[in-house]
Design a protein around this nucleic acid. Structure first.
Lengths: 349, 349
DNA sequence: GTGAAAGCGCTAACAT
DNA sequence: ATGTTAGCGCTTTCAC
């Protein structure tokens, strides 16, 4: 099958002059403002003229310029989402949630990205992006970036998981520390004393906080910290798989592994599979049968965590845009995936 | 662990007046045009004034309005990507490629989505979106949508996998028919006569073409078509899993299954796993050991297919924007994933 | 080297 | 019910 697998780039060029509102006005024999009125659904236009103008708009294939429109009017019915890139798993999860909220709303989304965090080495990049979008094209902005500085803008803004505890604007952040603490307490409550931990990249605030949760939980339970039980991954499946193997190969392996994020947990799952650990019927469930209903975690739920943050951020932004009062809210959400007993079973197998 | 897993919406409001170019001019004691000159790096400004203005810009945290800027000047250094939604697997793959191209370039990306194909029930939605972005805010546009009509715009445009064979503008499309044909020929060449097919949603042109490839390959090999060997999925893993089970449960099951896209292939993989089919060491490989080197497909490669289309589309758009001549190009790319022997092995197991 | 002035396509008073 | 007018924030002649 030599060229069985091909795609084709069919080429053609073209260019045409853009049709403006005054073209429409001229063609319809009315003034620009009348056309504008029709465009914006004002009701003080004669049915007859309106119909006629609609027709002309159709025929001329006229579409109003976003730029011009947003320069004059407050509302554009668009919200902005600023992300360093749109390729990563993190980005994807957030987009999932944002997309859901957008689909439900009457707003559309304008997602801005440079494709790479490292592009544009200016001082306050985020600041720039925000005002670029927010001050003109969109009604509000969601920013997902390692925002390290407070900045002020005149546009409604919500931040997702910012590095700072309290940026100067509404933020959705995960309770990384408390989540890890609770997950650990759960494992400790089950009688585990040797609990492995697969950490995330230490330059990420969230990773650090989760690690601290792990450490503090042990301390509070008077369990001595064994450094060899902590391996540092990078929040990806592949690396976590490696980490899990490393933990299982220890002289005295852990009886449970706490993977600090969902991707890592999947890695642990793979590693466990590889060593012959029995797999639950439903692949999406990872040994949580004994958890209380409320904390019954499966991969689907977990995958919704970041996604849910995206969703909530968008909803919050909508509130902000509509000028509704914003209260501090707390939402229940799983943050971590705990794989328990895996090592023990593996030893048995 | 009652509220172990929580996230917090921290609330704060604020509003400030947006700083414009004339604010800067006033603060710097110069005219607007001078500021504009500095902004656009014109070289006919005194070093001294330039530095001073830069300073003021910094201090005032001024960012030029995208809307205003793109109203006056041709280039915005942004390209647009129009997608029905950004949640699906299809969208993700394409974004992967586009992101890569964007990261390499000096352009940034503005991705527009309504979050749901069904939103905005106007006649020519795509047309609208394109001119909304293209005629103002972006230098060019990539459109990913079931484009059913030809439309003309004055902005550079590239389409990804359009329904039409020849829209009036450059397009990247997959060789769905030929790809399926070749994949089938490969299986037939291995001696298979009963080959199952998991089709995609029949309303998708690509799905239809792949099905035709399946059918025609059989015809050409003088193998009678057995309708029971064709099950219709929807290009998703879950459904394909169901389909695979159905095929395996046939009185006379197929000896090979051709899944019409990568997601479906994963579904087949799951189903096979479930029935006790031996899994290759490397989970990413799905029984392709015997394929010739050039066609050695694994999930990673497959995942890059759509992604590559996104990449090529973006590159093509750049060429278009820069006014470079565009030739018809052919690129090699795997389009399909074939899972072979699965049923036979399952029967054996 | 710099400022004044004219618009880009549009909306929103203000007229009529 | 419709036209006139004045900008939105910016770039770009065209003067000085």
């Amino acid at each position: 099958m030599p060229n069985s697998l091909t795609f084709i780039i069919a080429a053609m060029q073209q260019r045409k002059h853009s049709v403006t509102i005054s073209d429409v006005a001229k063609a319809a024999g009315v003034s620009v403002s009348t056309v504008s009125r029709v465009l914006n659904g004002k009701d003080d236009v004669a049915k007859e003229t309106e119909l006629h103008i609609q027709e002309v708009i159709q025929k001329l294939e006229y579409t109003s310029s976003l730029a011009a429109r947003s320069m004059r009017s407050e509302k554009t019915n668009m919200i902005g989402l600023i992300m360093p890139d749109i390729a990563g798993a993190y980005a994807r999860e957030i987009m999932l949630g944002v997309n859901r909220a957008i689909a439900e709303s009457d707003h559309d989304l304008l997602l801005f990205t440079t494709g790479d965090v490292r592009k544009h080495e200016t001082a306050s990049r985020e600041q720039q992006y925000v005002s670029m979008l927010g001050n003109s094209i969109t009604d509000g902005v969601i920013i997902v970036a390692p925002v390290t500085e407070v900045f002020s803008v005149e546009t409604p803004i919500v931040s997702i998981d910012p590095v700072m505890g309290h940026p100067g604007y509404p933020a959705i952040h995960a309770t990384n520390y408390q989540g890890a603490l609770d997950a650990m307490n759960y494992l400790i409550g089950l009688g585990h004393r040797r609990i492995g931990f697969i950490a995330g990249r230490p330059e990420l605030e969230s990773a650090v906080r989760r690690l601290r949760g792990y450490q503090d939980a042990l301390k509070q339970a008077n369990i001595e910290l064994d450094e060899s039980l902590i391996v540092t991954g990078d929040f990806t499946t592949g690396t976590a798989e490696e980490c899990a193997r490393q933990l299982m190969d220890l002289q005295e392996p852990p009886t449970a592994i706490f993977a600090a994020n969902d991707q890592s947990a999947i890695g642990v799952y793979h590693a466990a599979l590889e060593r012959g650990l029995r797999i639950p019927e439903d692949m999406s469930l990872i040994g949580f049968d004994n958890l209380p209903e409320a904390a019954y975690l499966n991969l689907t739920t977990i995958d919704q965590f970041l996604s849910e943050m995206g969703y909530q951020a968008t909803k919050t932004l909508f509130q902000l845009i509509e000028g509704k009062p914003l209260e501090k809210q707390i939402q229940q959400m799983p943050t971590h995936l705990v794989v328990r007993n895996s090592c023990r079973e593996i030893k048995a197998g």
